[in-house]
């Protein structure tokens, strides 16, 4: 029984991590609070729904969702965000505009009603844990979350690209002085953030349904996770996802009415005790906004 609850918590944590990692990375390198990620999330959600509905199978449908999110993000970065470097307020407003447009476009094309996801193959199966059925999909979610964390952590630690991204996050000015071209890095990281958001959207469908305002609904949780973890820190995002996911599952199991309240309480507690987040750097030591 308790094993089931813990596994649910872990799968929630994995979902929160995938949802928030892109936002955190994008903030790290660009200093932008990327509202548009909720738009890429919805685009990915509907892309996966479309793929599954046409019998593509899980893997192609989810990859399609990530690609849709990534391509949209790349287009937005090149056409709208690039001219606004150094203008933090302008960038926030622009990403907010992109989110509103994507949400409304999806609403326009597919309608406001909740669509049923095609639950075939792995999506419909369950395994028994301690006499209780547990959806295989949630196990898959945990595996995907772990995989993405490892890929991100290893790529940031051991590849040349990762080195340049870390340099850009630490100090954009110094990275540029050392000959790192930061502009292409921004495009790459932003597109990666879009892919992660699209993938998170695809993963959201099977357990919460497919509807246009899903992006806005999950935005609150994304914000809580990144505030608790500390913006720009991937291990921080992971730690916060675990705390929030497990807390939500445990409290949701014992006192269902407090499931969301506990998240906000955790956030307020962290803010009071450690404003920069669990693993974030103290403010004032960052150089992410240099024009």
């Amino acid at each position: 029984m308790i094993l089931n609850v813990l596994l649910s918590g872990l799968s929630l944590a994995a979902f929160y991590f995938i949802l928030s990692a892109g936002l955190s990375l994008v903030f790290g390198i660009m200093g932008v609070l990327n509202f548009a990620s909720a738009g890429y999330f919805v685009a990915g959600l509907y892309a996966a729904w479309f793929g599954l509905g046409h019998g593509w199978g899980i893997l192609p449908a989810f990859i399609f969702a990530a690609v849709v999110g990534g391509v949209l993000a790349l287009l937005v970065e090149v056409s709208l965000l690039r001219p606004l470097y150094g203008n933090v307020g302008g960038q926030i407003l622009t990403t907010l505009g992109v989110m509103l447009i994507l949400d409304e476009a999806v609403n326009w094309v597919f309608g406001p009603q909740i669509q049923q996801e095609q639950m075939t193959g792995l999506l419909s199966q369950t395994v028994m844990f301690g006499g209780m059925p547990f959806p295989v999909f949630r196990l898959l979610l945990i595996a995907v979350g772990v995989l993405i964390f490892l890929l991100l952590a290893l790529a940031l630690r051991y590849t040349g690209l990762g080195l340049r991204v870390r340099a850009g996050v630490d100090s954009q000015t110094l990275a540029e002085l050392a000959g790192v071209r930061v502009a292409p890095l921004r495009s790459i990281v932003y597109a990666l953030g879009g892919m992660l958001a699209g993938l998170a959207g695809a993963l959201y469908g099977p357990f919460s349904g497919v509807y246009p305002s899903a992006g806005l609904d999950t935005l609150l949780l994304t914000f809580i996770v990144v505030v608790v973890g500390g913006l720009g820190s991937i291990p921080g995002t992971l730690a916060a996802s675990l705390v929030i996911g497990l807390a939500e599952a445990l409290v949701g199991f014992f006192v269902p009415s407090l499931a969301l309240t506990v998240n906000v309480l955790v956030m307020i507690l962290v803010l009071l005790l450690r404003p920069q987040g669990l693993l974030g750097k103290p403010p004032g030591r960052r150089d992410t906004h240099a024009a």
Binding site: L80, L84, N87, G90, L93, T94, L96, G97, V98, M99, L100, I101, D103, E104, A105, N107, W108
Partner: peptide
């Protein structure tokens, strides 16, 4: 909402 989004981007 669509118009709102466009206006946001255009004003900035």
């Amino acid at each position: 909402g669509l118009l709102l989004g466009v206006v946001y981007i255009a004003v900035v």
